[in-house]
């Protein structure tokens, strides 16, 4: 056999092995090259077995997901930073935000109130989104932005409920679920919390016993702090918002469990579970914060 034929024979045999064939069957196919092929095929097979035997370090894999989640949230937060938005004057979001401002300024109150009840896919929905963006832009503190994101996450949940009750398509519900999850993440990051390592979404998810989000009043403790001075009233409002959101999640979970199982449904459920978990942890962090304050002399 020529070199070219040897090379092709080896590759054919490797592909056959990948499909579950045996070395012997391959050699029967190329009897004239069998003597040279056999040791190479055995070595290839053994090398593959060595690779397959390398165990994936589960803890490292889990920690890596946490690193990615944190980096992702930071990247998203940077993208939504208004300082950068100033340099994108032609961005669609700004154009829509400006339209919303003009509508407000010229007495379009009726339009904007009607828009508040709209859902994705409706004519006035862009106005609602523009209002939200505008509110985020004019909210200068991280604390204020976090509250708005928490509120908007809740809005998205309600929109999904409406979409479901109106029998709208899965696509639009799924997109809304992703938006809800993004708002949730931003809320937690802006609160000064480090995003927890996500646990794979499961139906038997239980709340963690200790808060994972590092939120504390004391910079000396080494935890990330919420730097703004905030009254307990503000904190109470946010906590109530989280709790309401959590109740929404619970209702939505029951609703989803009654629906037929599809891939999209599963993805949406996963999105819900992740948001739900983040909110749970946020609630626990808020409670820990209250307890730390109340135990302070």
């Amino acid at each position: 056999m020529s070199d070219k034929q040897d090379v092709d024979a080896l590759n054919t045999c490797l592909e056959l092995l990948e499909q579950g064939s045996t070395i012997e069957a391959c050699l029967e196919r190329f009897p004239e090259a069998a003597a040279e092929l056999e040791p190479l095929l055995r070595l290839a097979k053994q090398t593959k077995q060595v690779g397959d035997a390398i165990e994936t370090p589960a803890e490292a894999q889990r920690l890596g997901l946490g690193r990615i989640t944190d980096a992702w949230a930071t990247k998203q937060a940077k993208r939504s930073n208004p300082r950068w938005r100033v340099f994108r004057p032609l961005a669609k979001s700004w154009a829509i935000a400006m339209i919303a401002v003009m509508v407000l300024a010229f007495g379009g109150w009726t339009t904007t109130s009607t828009a508040a009840g709209s859902v994705p896919g409706e004519v006035l929905y862009p106005v609602k989104k523009a209002q939200e963006r505008f509110r985020l832009v004019v909210s200068f503190s991280d604390r204020g932005k976090a509250e708005l994101h928490a509120k908007f996450a809740q809005e998205r949940t309600q929109e999904i409920e409406k979409l479901a009750s109106r029998g709208k398509g899965q696509d639009v519900m799924e997109r809304t679920a992703v938006r809800m999850e993004n708002h949730t993440r931003r809320a937690v990051v802006l609160m000064g919390g480090v995003l927890p390592t996500p646990v794979p979404a499961t139906s038997d998810f239980t709340a963690p016993t200790t808060p994972q989000i590092r939120v504390t009043l004391d910079p000396a403790s080494g935890f990330i702090t919420i730097t703004e001075n905030k009254s307990s009233r503000e904190r109470y409002v946010m906590q109530q918002r989280f709790l309401r959101q959590y109740q929404n999640f619970q209702e939505m979970e029951q609703r989803l469990s009654r629906q037929a199982e599809t891939n999209r449904r599963a993805r949406m459920e996963e999105s819900f579970h992740r948001s739900q978990e983040l909110f749970l942890r946020a609630i626990l962090a808020m409670k820990a914060l209250e307890e730390a304050e109340s135990s302070r002399p």
Binding site: I54, T56, G64, L65, I68, W72, V178, N182, P198, R267
Partner: peptide, 30 residues
Amino acid sequence: EGNLSAFGSIYESFFPKVYRYVAARIGYGP
């Protein structure tokens, strides 16, 4: 499009292969 869960799925799917590749080249360990 900004879906972290999707990237998480990619990560779960490829991490073992990538780890095997790296470990076979530089050895096991942190």
